[in-house]
Design a protein around this nucleic acid. Structure first.
Lengths: 339, 339
DNA sequence: TTGTAGGCGTTATCAG
DNA sequence: CTGATAACGCCTACAA
């Protein structure tokens, strides 16, 4: 079969335990024998078996990723690849492997996570989203299993390690920007309010309006989730209000694309008839026509820091929960203009 | 510590081996004891430890994914999420977990794969790309480790399990389509010819030209890899030829977006001045303006079948290499028109 | 049909 | 500094 620690031991004429120590680079082994053992490993093409190690060790050197359960939709969003890129960069630095868990429903996802952690496949978990009242999060808390969250948990967020943007501020920033361009009738396509991100941004939106003494109008808020149909119904509702909005804040660039297409079809022109500002700054946003004004939330670093926090937690257990805020920045392009 | 097979055994008043058999659903155990054991598992919240099982078993119930090494660029392409979605759907059906391996360079990727397979983390590997002379593929072949490839391996492709579109046909189809619209000067942005996919499509392109008795012109072929700058240099070279192309075939929708943006900036209009047809049919392509004419290569099924082949190979070793062709289909939208 | 015992490849704990 | 030896949790002959 494959070459084991014993084969190496035999060749180097030492005990298996010594080989193990060499692997762990234990300082109490003389350089001499270390070298002898290393040569033996080399010449035999030895590679440690992670399973055996995990078993003896109770540690796996790998972390699990939990996607939102509606993978099919969500996976089309370049947000996830980018956040995973951030995570895996950090993981790689520390020699951790990455496990993915998916599921078609919340129940399936939960089962996947249960298997992952009870089965001893991972040392910790990153939740790639944050939604209200998430079962997986509660489960992880109950089990006292190390995890970090991208986004802000709804409850007791101080007790949960997470990394997020300052979304209240971000919501305020875009609104302020639009107000400063002279807009007063600003609609907001925020999608389902299950997501804490959206809740926070709306808060910032309201704050900005308030500061500018513009009254908040419920009818300007679109809570529907849509993507494929471009939200035709909702958009045309907005545009046929007595006083239709002159600007639109959209929760996500991808959604903006689809909305822009709808608006185009309806015969309006962007940004002349309607300014649009959204969030995420996907690579594509630059190539949209017109190029999209959007908030860059630094997705890569969201992932990178989430991994960082988690690994830290795994290596030094029993720490306080940590919070990291990743700075955002408004990227003004051509979908927004003064009124 | 966590609850093991022994605890269950004790509670159910049977031997550990019996519990093990119940888990494997061994038919030689009476329904009675099975039930007793299952109750015990339930009440203790037992979950099998995968590491121990793998160790005893020499099988991990997980598969590894190998991305192209230039993850940073490639990951922004929705191709990968979608193909992974296909893979993980199949994997999930068969209760396999998914490992990801990434790396900044080919060397790093290779090391990652080596660790994955020598360390016994995975039972098989899917290579999510196919490029000429790939070290990872050679390595896997040398080790006789089960793997499948998405795309077509350059050498001995009959001996390697892979799933691909009929790219020669696809290349021919788009070219035929354009010719049938009356185009004769058809340029092709194919990117680096390291990728077998591109090589095949070009073959089809040439074939179509030949059939229509149009001479192949080297100057119409753009082999540069670009994305961020929208290929300004190359595009303007094309457009300032004595006889500039009237149609453009582009290897990937994402690239099309960026090219369309460039062309727009140069003052040309699509499809009036230039028709564009590309490949992949990303979700976004529908929302582009104008909506993109493109070949749907059924990315999801590329992934799904790659996983299917691999799992089959893992479960019944020593099989012949298998080839699967996933059908493609031209989706005509608005970036192409008769000349 | 079920129990016993040894092994999978490592690491950890003692001794020396 | 290094060597035995006993876990880690599960599987699988072999026995009963």
């Amino acid at each position: 079969m494959s070459v084991t620690i014993k084969d190496v031991a035999k060749l180097a004429k030492v005990a298996p335990s010594t080989v193990s120590r060499v692997i762990a680079n234990n300082p109490r082994i003389s350089e001499q024998t270390k070298n002898r053992v290393r040569e033996a490993m080399e010449s035999l093409g030895y590679h440690p078996n992670y399973n055996a190690r995990s078993l003896a060790n109770r540690s796996t050197q790998s972390i699990g990723l939990v996607m939102p359960s509606s993978v099919d939709k969500v996976f089309q969003n370049p947000f996830f690849p980018e956040v995973i890129r951030g995570i895996s960069t950090k993981a790689h630095e520390e020699d951790f492997a990455i496990y993915m868990s998916t599921g078609q429903s919340e129940q399936e996802s939960l089962e996947g996570v249960e298997r992952m952690i009870h089965g001893g496949r991972v040392d910790g978990v990153i939740i790639l989203y944050s939604s209200i009242d998430d079962k997986i999060m509660s489960f992880l808390q109950k089990e006292k299993f190390p995890f970090s969250v991208i986004g802000k948990p709804y409850n007791n967020f101080k007790q949960i390690t997470h990394v997020d943007n300052d979304n209240v501020q971000a919501g305020k920033d875009v609104t302020d920007y639009l107000i400063q361009l002279g807009h007063k009738r600003i609609a907001y396509v925020c999608g389902s309010l299950d997501s804490v991100v959206s809740i926070d941004r709306i808060l910032g939106y309201k704050k900005a309006l308030q500061n500018a003494e513009i009254t908040y109008q419920e009818e300007y808020i679109v809570k529907e989730e849509f993507l494929h149909d471009g939200g035709e119904k909702e958009i045309s509702r907005l545009m046929s209000l007595q006083s239709p909005p002159t600007a639109l804040i959209v929760k996500d660039d991808l959604l903006s694309f689809s909305i822009m297409s709808t608006i185009d079809n309806m015969g309006y022109s962007i940004p002349k008839d309607l300014s649009i500002v959204s969030f995420n700054n996907l690579m594509l946003s630059e190539f949209a026509r017109p190029p999209l004004t959007t908030v860059d939330i630094d997705i890569f670093n969201l992932g990178y820091h989430a991994a960082d926090c988690l690994l830290d937690q795994i290596k030094n257990p029993g720490q306080e929960a940590k919070q990291v805020i990743v700075p955002h920045r408004l990227v003004v392009r051509q979908t927004s203009q003064p009124i």
